[in-house]
Measured scan of single mutants.
Amino acid sequence: GLEHMADEEKLPPGWEKRMERSSGRVYYFNHITNASQWERPSG
């Protein structure tokens, strides 16, 4: 619901949600550090 939507907005600075086109899996990418990970970043 709306709570989940708001929660997605609160990623740490630099992080954004991305989708891997080949598999459709969602991952997280940090455009500041060029880091990427499957787990939702905390902090």
Results as ranks from 00 to 15, higher is better:
residue 37 Q to L: 05
residue 11 L to T: 02
residue 8 E to L: 08
residue 9 E to D: 12
residue 26 V to N: 05
residue 5 M to H: 12
residue 9 E to R: 06
residue 24 G to E: 05
residue 1 G to A: 13
residue 39 E to I: 07
residue 37 Q to F: 03
residue 17 K to S: 04
residue 13 P to D: 10
residue 23 S to L: 04
residue 15 W to S: 00
residue 24 G to W: 03
residue 22 S to D: 15
residue 43 G to K: 08
residue 28 Y to G: 00
residue 24 G to H: 06
residue 22 S to K: 14
residue 38 W to D: 06
residue 13 P to E: 09
residue 13 P to K: 06
residue 43 G to F: 14
residue 40 R to L: 07
residue 17 K to T: 07
residue 8 E to Y: 07
residue 4 H to K: 07
residue 28 Y to A: 00
residue 24 G to T: 03
residue 34 N to I: 04
residue 11 L to W: 02
residue 23 S to N: 06
residue 9 E to M: 09
residue 39 E to A: 08
residue 27 Y to M: 03
residue 26 V to R: 03
residue 34 N to R: 10
residue 7 D to H: 09
residue 19 M to W: 15
residue 36 S to I: 15
residue 30 N to Y: 04
residue 5 M to E: 13
residue 35 A to S: 11
residue 24 G to P: 01
residue 8 E to Q: 09
residue 30 N to W: 01
residue 15 W to Y: 01
residue 10 K to H: 10
residue 43 G to P: 11
residue 38 W to K: 04
residue 6 A to M: 10
residue 35 A to W: 13
residue 32 I to W: 09
residue 6 A to F: 12
residue 29 F to V: 05
residue 33 T to P: 00
residue 7 D to V: 12
residue 4 H to E: 12
residue 26 V to D: 05
residue 37 Q to T: 06
residue 22 S to R: 12
residue 3 E to P: 12
residue 12 P to E: 03
residue 24 G to F: 04
residue 6 A to R: 11
residue 17 K to R: 09
residue 15 W to M: 00
residue 17 K to E: 08
residue 8 E to S: 10
residue 11 L to A: 01
residue 6 A to S: 12
residue 21 R to A: 15
residue 13 P to Y: 13
residue 1 G to F: 11
residue 16 E to H: 05
residue 25 R to M: 07
residue 28 Y to I: 00
residue 40 R to H: 08
residue 9 E to T: 08
residue 23 S to P: 02
residue 26 V to Y: 15
residue 8 E to A: 09
residue 18 R to W: 05
residue 38 W to R: 05
residue 43 G to A: 13
residue 17 K to D: 01
residue 39 E to P: 06
residue 33 T to W: 05
residue 43 G to N: 10
residue 32 I to Q: 09
residue 38 W to A: 05
residue 13 P to F: 12
residue 37 Q to I: 05
residue 39 E to F: 06
residue 22 S to Q: 15
residue 14 G to C: 07
residue 16 E to A: 03
residue 19 M to V: 15
residue 6 A to I: 13
residue 13 P to M: 08
residue 41 P to K: 00
residue 4 H to T: 12
residue 10 K to D: 13
residue 19 M to P: 03
residue 38 W to Q: 05
residue 7 D to W: 09
residue 7 D to Q: 10
residue 9 E to H: 08
residue 25 R to N: 05
residue 10 K to Q: 14
residue 26 V to G: 03
residue 10 K to W: 14
residue 40 R to E: 04
residue 31 H to Y: 14
residue 33 T to N: 07
residue 9 E to Y: 10
residue 28 Y to R: 01
residue 29 F to S: 01
residue 37 Q to G: 01
residue 33 T to H: 04
residue 39 E to T: 09
residue 33 T to R: 04
residue 11 L to F: 03
residue 43 G to Q: 13
residue 43 G to T: 10
residue 3 E to L: 09
residue 4 H to I: 14
residue 27 Y to L: 02
residue 17 K to A: 06
residue 19 M to I: 15
